[in-house]
């Protein structure tokens, strides 16, 4: 079959919303786009473990400690199925990790911000996982089968994390003055970076158009960002917290909230490596990988010995 015919068949499948599976023919660019996006997502899960792991040993009650452990463990699990989904496209996990460590592959910039108080565990769940869900729910219908199926499970767990984070915020906001201050401070620091999680404006997004054509992406960055703001403002009101945006107001005509201009200079700075924790996050990942080299070698050596014994 000629490449043109294969491509035509592929496009028909996309148009009819038939899932593309690992053994199906796909354009090289589609495969590359998926590898980039899925691995970026997997990296975000494992780098995202670090800011939250930072508070596990200091969690303020045993119930919170258990919940924090379970949450970070879920994230590791998400990393695992996303790396596996990526491997169905013909790449190895080790190569993907090498790209993360060298800085070639990106991960969500939000994890380059520090977790400075316990309230950050609440704010991350509420805002960061909340924004992640907005981005990820449409991916459950992504055209590539293994990705879409992984996302169904990821989204279920993320929505649980989001409620758990909001509940941490609610408890703090019903608590002492110091706890309320902690909650407000966390919102102040995490609000804008959360809005940045939807990526550049539609006018500046270089991947959006092609990804929408291929059914990998279903909504534009600005559409999702607006949806997030509209859902989150009433939640902040229930908490009695002030969203740090003086331009924020309900627009009756549009039926949406208007909000202020995102500091894009900060966004591009954090992406290009100048965020407060970029270096620490990658150093931590590299250290874990390098310190673990002898363990992986030992496991392989032992497995080979066992296999030889079986043959003999």
């Amino acid at each position: 079959m000629s490449t043109e015919l294969l491509e035509q068949k592929f496009n028909e499948k996309i148009d009819q919303e038939v899932r593309i599976e690992p053994k199906d023919w796909m354009p090289e660019k589609y495969r590359k786009t998926l590898i980039r996006q899925i691995s970026q997502h997997a990296h975000s899960e494992i780098v995202g473990m670090l800011p939250e792991a930072n508070w596990i040993t200091r969690a303020p009650s045993l119930r919170r400690k258990a919940a924090a452990l379970a949450k970070v463990q879920d994230e590791a699990g998400h990393g695992l199925y996303l790396y596996s989904a990526c491997e169905t496209l013909g790449v190895e996990r080790d190569d993907l990790l090498a790209d993360l460590h060298s800085g070639k592959a990106k991960y969500s910039s939000i994890f380059n911000y520090p977790t400075l108080s316990w309230a950050d565990m609440g704010a991350i769940g509420w805002l960061v996982d909340g924004a992640a869900i907005m981005n990820q729910v449409p991916l459950c219908r992504a055209s590539y089968g293994p990705y879409a199926r992984a996302m169904v499970r990821v989204c279920k767990e993320e929505s649980f994390h989001q409620r758990q984070g909001y509940e941490i915020m609610l408890t703090l906001c019903k608590g002492s003055e110091a706890q309320k201050k902690m909650a407000q401070d966390a919102l102040n620091r995490w609000w804008w970076p959360s809005l940045m999680m939807f990526g550049p404006t539609d006018a500046d997004s270089k991947h959006t158009e092609q990804s929408m054509r291929w059914g990998i992406k279903r909504f534009t960055n600005d559409e999702l960002r607006q949806k997030f703001v509209d859902v989150t403002i009433p939640q902040a009101e229930i908490l009695g917290l002030t969203v740090p945006d003086k331009d924020l107001k309900w627009n009756e005509e549009r039926g949406h909230y208007d909000f202020g201009e995102i500091n894009w200079e900060e966004f591009f700075n954090v992406i290009s490596g100048n965020g407060p924790c970029n270096k620490q996050r990658i150093d931590a990942r590299k250290k874990a990988y390098d310190d673990g080299a002898w363990v992986r070698e030992a496991a392989n050596a032992y497995a080979e010995k066992k296999a030889k014994k079986k043959v003999a």
Binding site: A53, T57, A66, L69, G77, L80, A284, A288, G292, V295
Partner: peptide, 27 residues
Amino acid sequence: AEWCGHGPILEQDIALTNISLDLIGQA
């Protein structure tokens, strides 16, 4: 729990966290 996010292999990071979680549950 100090290992969380720093394990030598992702699968073993999960195992360490899982055992930590069981122990906190028993406690």
